[in-house]
Design a protein around this nucleic acid. Structure first.
Lengths: 150, 150
DNA sequence: TTCTTAAATAGTAATTTTACTATATGCTTT
DNA sequence: AAAGCATATAGTAAAATTACTATTTAAGAA
């Protein structure tokens, strides 16, 4: 049964094409893995999903394309001590994350502090802002409970 | 000639002691390396500085202590594609950074968007915020010029 | 000071991420 | 449809980061 293509992956492909990047089966697969699969996969998990369809894809290719897509704003990268996570950027749903430093649990928070003032401040210094990272680190409910019991 | 101890490093040691962590020569050296040496050193660079005084210190020890200090808010970690950078947190000078994705150049920007509203929003979800990351990524003046010339 | 003990370390291994190179392939032009 | 070419890939190597274990050591108690 053919899986329906989600809009975010399609828009990602369109942007790649517009920017002059080639549309390869590997790139399609990476985008589809992010779109269809589980939330916040690591690079390894993306590779595993991709290999179900294309067994010969290399880890290097996954990393190279994730990095490219992060740079283009198609994909969001979440820094975590035990393996970074990736997430498809849903157009019109810009947001950030709560990351538990104990168990790695990651969830969205619909907040963003970015504004023109900040960008102008950077521009004054000759800096062209192409992206930003804003994440909360701390303890999720489950880990707070466990630590309190000690 | 005895080097004068800087206040930030001293406060870091004090916090470690308060929290029950042991004061080891390695921890002193890591703090002094961050305080005295060059700006935004990588873990490798911290190790090199530390080894000038204590040649047998292991890389593991440097990483372990940097991570500990980041968790305690003594040290700030800056995520960069080619090697993360570290910075002593100067009490009373909370700030964030501009990071050039082309050359890695890093500079401070005296801005922070964190506020009570955000923390309360996280608390509603059972999440205890212990830290946050807010960084700008883009191109510095020098790299913008080089890319324009192509 | 000496003793005790939990925490920290050095050394090493494992994992994650990035870099390199020869080959293959998507895209444009013919 | 075929050719040319710059880009992308697989495979591998290198570098950065995290984890593991036996030994050492800082800090409090006797």
């Amino acid at each position: 049964m053919e899986r329906e293509k989600k809009p975010a992956a399609a828009q990602g492909l369109e942007l790649l094409r517009t920017k002059g990047y080639k549309i390869t089966p590997q790139r399609r697969a990476v985008l589809e893995a992010l779109d269809g699969g589980e939330q916040f996969p690591t690079a390894q998990q993306v590779l595993e999903i991709v290999r179900k369809q294309q067994p010969d894809v290399s880890l290097d290719t996954v990393y190279r394309n994730l990095t490219l897509m992060v740079g283009l704003g198609i994909v969001h990268e979440i820094y975590r001590s035990a393996g970074n996570a990736y997430e498809m950027v849903e157009p019109g749903h810009h947001h950030h994350h709560l990351v538990c430093t104990a168990c790695g649990k990651t969830e969205c928070i619909d907040i963003c502090p970015m504004n023109k003032i900040y960008e102008k401040e950077a521009e004054k210094r000759g800096f062209l802002v192409t992206g930003h990272v804003f994440e909360f680190y701390g303890l999720c409910w489950s880990c707070r409970s466990k630590l309190a019991k000690k």
